[in-house]
Write a protein that binds this DNA or RNA. Sequence first.
DNA 1: CTCACTATTGCTATGACTTGCGATAACCGA
DNA 2: TCGGTTATCGCAAGTCATAGCAATAGTGAG
Lengths: 139, 139
Amino acid sequence: MDLGSDLRAKGKRLTVQRRLVLEAVQRARHHVTADEVAKRVRGEAGQIDPSTVYRNLEALEELGYVTHTHLGSRVTRWHRADMHQHAHLVCRSCGAEDEVPVSVFTGLARRLRTSHGFRADLAHSAVEGICRRCAVVQS
Amino acid sequence: MDLGSDLRAKGKRLTVQRRLVLEAVQRARHHVTADEVAKRVRGEAGQIDPSTVYRNLEALEELGYVTHTHLGSRVTRWHRADMHQHAHLVCRSCGAEDEVPVSVFTGLARRLRTSHGFRADLAHSAVEGICRRCAVVQS
DNA sequence: CTCACTATTGCTATGACTTGCGATAACCGA
DNA sequence: TCGGTTATCGCAAGTCATAGCAATAGTGAG
């Protein structure tokens, strides 16, 4: 199935802007912000409104083409959905970001599922805390 | 130690607004938004600027009097720091919020600490996912 | 190919913060 | 008690994200 068919199967349409937004996210190696997506699109094609970018990222997320995560700051980061999953540790003190495999969370995920029937997406939000280096400095 | 001394020990000052903001959070039974704090202060005393509320919440957080958490929506919720700790489960589909004791997270917290030296604050951000009811409906 | 239908776009407006700046008022030492 | 220093305040402006709305453009049917 291609993008166009996937979209139409859900009553959505394949517009120029939508295709450009997806391509921008796919070409990016790592997480990108909506604003970075807009800049990339503007570099390739012409102008694009920020709200269009946001709405398309959301639409593409529904289709399973992209996903977003919340890192330390309140900016949302987007990336292609077919990347390997990992969670983020963000230091509250120095802002350092670290990646950990999702396997670290499987125990907790299973526990929340059996005890609360809750399917947790633990990679979605970064885990805030104090990194090793800052913990040493502070004590 | 009282609020005034705590503040001055850090080179900060005890202003009318700062005291009112703290009292507003302390009187609130549960989590409150910055806007709700502003409204409470305005009810008690006169006018207060939103930016003053935000800056004071931040200052009081530094001193350990209040803390904030991020729930599903984009708004930040504040509460007194001496409340019993609990984490939140937020359903991505219906928005339902559930509370779980932090004890559920101690295993993961210990693991992140030994493997990465990272002191995780797992109650800070809500865990997103799909609640039991929505999981049943979707399948 | 043409046309009607309606999803999507861009624009504007709102919400939740955040930041810069001059005026004000805590605080401390004399 | 009286300044002088400077943290903090209120206001204006800016950012990121979402929502409403008229105009536009994909789409499927004929």
